[in-house]
């Protein structure tokens, strides 16, 4: 196997509160890796640290064996990122946003292809602000793919979406995976993790709780599905 993301002892505190506490994991090429935890468990901070958007107190994160802080250009030509609850400029249209993002990369994908892939081609001339939640979320994933990335980071991909919209996004993620893209996602929906992830990593208060394949995580708990297993791992009471 081919390791493409490697994280060792990543730690970060804000004002004396440790938000990410010594986490270590790796991600193999072509897999869907899920970072799971409650709201405020440190998932987004972990992504920020790994991407070099924040400076860790100690520990290292590398992508393709490179430090993203010192090799920003090389890393981000090959990595796509969707940040949590992305916002865009006022009055910007879908095609303008696509063009703007394309301008940042050396060899961008034709954005028409991406819009078609995410069933957004009819909205090309619409204002981004007027899109529905699901459409916006699909657009933000499309934008993360504009540089034909080998790895894509998706932070809280489906938060705030209704069931139908969520399942539609999942379908696109699966298709993406079948094309060989490595996917790193964070979520607090267990159904989502169960349906998409090859391996998962659970964190609570910035610390690792457990990791492994979805199956092995469920089997090491006394429960039969991921949601109940997750609550058990997190030390919450599992009510039927």
């Amino acid at each position: 196997m081919n390791t493409c993301i490697e994280v060792k002892d990543l730690t970060k505190s804000f004002n004396g509160r440790t938000v990410v506490d010594g986490i270590t994991f790796h991600v193999e090429k072509g897999e869907v890796f899920g970072l799971l935890g409650h709201n405020g468990a440190g998932k987004s901070t972990a992504i920020d640290l790994l991407l070099g958007l924040k400076k860790p107190d100690c520990g290292t994160g590398t992508i393709f064996g490179l430090n993203p802080v010192t090799n920003r250009k090389a890393v981000f030509e090959r990595v796509g990122v969707q940040l949590q609850s992305s916002n865009y400029q006022n009055n910007i249209r879908v095609d303008e946003l696509c063009k703007e993002m394309s301008a940042l990369y050396k060899e961008p994908e034709d954005y028409h292809t991406l819009l078609q892939f995410f069933s957004l081609e009819k909205l090309e001339k619409s204002q981004v602000n007027k899109l529905s939640g699901g459409e916006r979320q699909r657009l933000s994933v499309a934008l993360a793919l504009i540089n034909k990335p080998e790895i894509v980071f998706l932070d809280e991909l489906t938060t705030g979406l209704d069931t139908a919209a969520r399942r539609e996004v999942w379908g696109h993620i699966r298709e993406l995976k079948s094309k060989g893209t490595t996917i790193f996602l964070t979520t607090h929906y267990m159904e989502e993790a169960e349906s998409l992830c090859d391996r998962i990593f659970l964190i609570k208060d910035g610390k690792k709780v457990t990791e492994g394949t979805v199956k092995s995580v469920i089997e090491s708990s006394p429960y039969g599905n991921l949601e109940e297993a997750y609550l058990w791992y997190m030390g919450e009471e599992v009510t039927q």
Binding site: K73, A74, V81, L83, S86, N87, Q89, L104, Y105
Partner: peptide, 17 residues
Amino acid sequence: ADYRDKRILKHFFATPC
């Protein structure tokens, strides 16, 4: 201020630019 608030500036850090 608007772009900072919307994290548009931050997003540029996650690009080669």
